[in-house]
Design a protein around this nucleic acid. Structure first.
Lengths: 339, 339
DNA sequence: CTGTTAGCGCCTTCAT
DNA sequence: ATGAAGGCGCTAACAG
């Protein structure tokens, strides 16, 4: 079956013209006489000819493909990013090649290498960590890249992100304002910057109120991780009345653990989280928390990349920090009277 | 920056060999003397040479890319499919190009055309409807394709799907067994086969019990659609005691509507659904319902495609029907006594 | 073990 | 308005 696909030459022969004329009909129809054009178009339809972009690419050195590389596809953010990058890129005629890295740095470099081999025109990266290697590699190949979500202190690169450290203080301050004095932080892996940022913000807010954390835990950004951390924290003798969780999966796991221990959310324990899932996909509980504008971040990052591809922009990397949104929902309340 | 990337000729010149030798070092290292090989490898590293697959592709007529085309990326199924197709394809050295069609048939054809232009080696399609046009187009180009999720009566093509009509009867029978006599169906768009199948199964189960539906509704497969349908059905004077919903989004919308009307699930109204979300991503309510093995479907469909690409298989299209799973959770109970 | 030739499909350039 | 020549990066086929 393969190899039967019509080529520009097949069309040309059958229409009695040169391949170049067919090319013109495709790319610059006005430069061909109406008569010739309609004859060629008829043959194109007849042979079901679809131009081979591989040929074009080799000639023009542009694939018109950009890649989106996302660390963790199961995070609801990923969906918004895929949508957003795709929509933005399409407007400029680009197709998006999507890959995910299973949150492994090694995997990330492997994927990036594969993308360079395929000569994508640029890359939008939502990276695993903020180590400079991945960006270095891509830039070393002369490819433009922009990064979503992390500060990249070791690279000169376009970045779009939020300041989740400050947001973490805001979230913690809200719980303090409700009267909580015994707070725990359930964070992500300690080697991941966003987890660190969030823990730091938490601690600094407590310090500002003259308090110390009841517990600081680290685990993977998963339901299971949240569940285990919450079990150990809530099962001890020094129970917190409120927990801050570093992402939505941890929050869900923590709520599960609380429920299993016979505690109600928020009556017995409050949970405030980052990266609250959208109300569209989760009914209950709908968590109080910090929401990052994932779609806007992705759109801006893509826009910056497209700008460089179009040659509109060729200065040093810029960092754009977008504001987060704080939403109060059903998972937080003042501490129980006993506390 | 672009255009600075090293080519095979750059490497060859600098290593003092022919391009062909560099190619051999890359693709068939044993056929090159160790001495030459190490010299070439050194130059490759020095120039950061990354082979250009565009060239290879043009020469070999294989991109080593397969495409996954999914109708609706916001459905949790999509994530599992992306994962599953990617993992399966990678094992055979293929990369996956992912696109989504926003549930528009026109969009689907446009995307498929773009994929053919890029000369992907094959396509896995989770289609919008079961009209034959999309598959016809792809096959007309001599490209192998396999389909996930729908029966494709108009095509000779590999299909992996579930029998959701039968599953719908099973689901409805369960509600009947709980003692429900007044049931409503909240289904998807009437032009989509899966919605029809599910409605038909519902009706046939009721008929088997000598009952008629209290209501049959159609709306988009969204939270909003489910919400509106449930509002109208539960707000009327002929209230059902149980509802079957055609997917997880409709179920969530229906539960929201019930709650707003002051009804508890399942005490006042039961909800049983298709495509129940996994417990990992939704805490409460966790719906009673039918679960399709999305990952297995995608893996099998990809496997069939890869089999055709490898030439292991070239017979007529096969249809594989996988069993669904029925899980009882918290959203169903016997009808209230008053009923 | 290594090199040369040629051509994959297309488009830029130059000619007619 | 149309055509011919050449080359993008790579490798199959054949030589040596």
């Amino acid at each position: 079956m393969r190899g039967t696909m019509a080529t520009i030459r097949d069309v040309a022969d059958r229409a009695g013209v040169a391949p170049m004329t067919v090319s013109r009909v495709l790319n610059n129809p006005d430069s061909v006489s109406p008569k010739t054009r309609s004859r060629v178009e008829a043959v194109i339809a007849e042979l079901k000819y679809v131009p081979n972009m591989i040929g074009q690419t080799l000639r023009t050195n542009r694939t018109m493909v950009i890649a989106l590389v996302v660390a963790d596809i199961s995070n609801p953010f990923a969906i918004q990013q895929i949508r957003s990058v795709g929509d933005t890129a399409r407007r400029d005629g680009y197709t998006v090649l999507f890959t995910h890295t299973e949150a492994s740095e090694e995997n990330e470099l492997t994927q990036l290498r594969a993308l360079v081999q395929r000569r994508v025109d640029g890359i939008v990266l939502a990276p695993v960590t903020n180590r400079p290697d991945s960006v270095d590699f891509v830039q070393g190949q002369g490819l433009p890249i922009s990064v979503i979500g992390y500060p990249m202190p070791g690279n000169d690169v376009d970045v779009v992100r939020c300041d989740t450290g400050t947001a973490s203080r805001q979230l913690t301050d809200y719980l303090l304002g409700l009267g909580h004095k015994r707070l725990a932080m359930l964070s992500g892996p300690s080697e991941i910057v966003s987890a660190l940022e969030r823990t730091d913000g938490f601690i600094s807010a407590l310090r500002g109120a003259g308090l110390s954390p009841v517990a600081l835990r680290n685990a993977p950004f998963t339901v299971e991780g949240g569940y285990q951390m919450a079990l150990s924290v809530l099962g001890g003798h020094d129970r917190p009345s409120a927990m801050v969780t570093a992402n939505n999966f941890i929050a869900i796991g923590a709520a599960k653990a609380a429920r299993e221990l016979g505690m109600r959310v928020p009556e017995d324990v409050s949970i405030a989280t980052f990266d609250n899932a959208r109300s569209d996909s989760v009914l209950d509980p709908f968590f109080t928390g910090i929401i990052q504008p994932a779609a806007e971040m992705a759109e801006l990052a893509t826009g910056m990349l497209l700008g460089r591809l179009a040659g509109d922009e060729d200065g040093p990397g810029r960092e754009i920090i977008l504001p987060t949104r704080f939403e109060v929902h059903d998972s937080t309340a003042p501490p129980p009277a006993a506390n």
